[in-house]
Design a protein around this nucleic acid. Structure first.
Lengths: 146, 146
DNA sequence: CTATATGCAAATAGTTTGCCTGTTA
DNA sequence: TAACAGGCAAACTATTTGCATATAG
């Protein structure tokens, strides 16, 4: 089975499980998020979506993204007050934001570090989720001659 | 020396160091952030500021907060798309957001955990800052009978 | 006295909503 | 064919900006 049918099945199963319908727009947006995993904003997704689906609207992009987040196929990534970005990597990971290039890179987190972060919580606190965001200078920007 | 003159001196030194003027409004806002350290939003700060300084405007609240952040007397805290909150605790710490009460609690982070988080970064990456946000259920909300 | 901060109102950016039409199951 | 999704424009919220007046150094 090729990639396209694989994600289609994944998408349709998840939508069905959440009592949601499968539509061209949802499929299109999910496909382009998987294709280029660079944490685009809704506006960027809208721009990409229009090539190949010229009639799609920005509101639909927002609606589809919301549905995909609810069905847990993608997640949102926020940096300060910047526009929300979208990420199809569902493993527990952090994000690194490069101040120079603006690139966002996934950072894998060892289980050990995660469990230590949980142990740091005071008695009586339980966390459902930890969001970890680094910011600094990425590999490429260190390599580049300044 | 009582608290009031202590923070006044701290504020004035920091402002002077940053080439910024000392104003009634800046002082008032800094004082109320220190007084009730509950991570208020700009709107909440505006409401509190007006009792005691009825003529202050929301734009001035934003301007003062920006100045205080720039002079490193306070820091901003962001949760998802929610309005920015302000925090006078300058130690390296994380935030815990309780989904039930909406309260935000400072979580102290041991040096060891922080250095492990730095070591997790791929070769060539350097971070200036790590932002860590937990969300879940706080102590008080666990204790309460549901 | 002069640069800078305040206060007000209008502007902006990102996102959401309402309403009508089109599509899916 | 009934319920839900899409498209468009208008609304909304948090924040920023422009400009005239007030204030700090």
């Amino acid at each position: 089975m090729h990639l396209k049918s694989k994600y289609k099945k994944l998408l349709n199963n998840a939508l069905e499980a959440g009592g949601q319908r499968s539509t061209k727009q949802r499929e299109h947006i999910f496909a382009l998020l998987l294709e280029k995993r660079d944490h685009p904003t809704a506006d960027e997704i809208f721009a990409r979506a229009r090539s190949g689906m010229s009639t799609i609207s920005l509101a639909t992009v927002y609606n589809c993204l919301e549905t995909l987040v609810e069905t847990k196929l993608i997640r949102q990534v926020n940096f300060e007050r910047e526009p929300t970005r979208y990420c199809p990597n569902l493993t527990q990971h952090a994000h690194f934001y490069c101040r120079e290039s603006g690139d966002i890179v996934d950072i894998e987190l060892p289980e050990k570090v995660l469990s230590e972060l949980m142990q740091v919580l005071p008695k009586g606190f339980s966390a459902q989720h930890i969001e970890i965001a680094y910011d600094g200078k990425c590999n490429d920007c260190h390599d580049a001659v300044n």
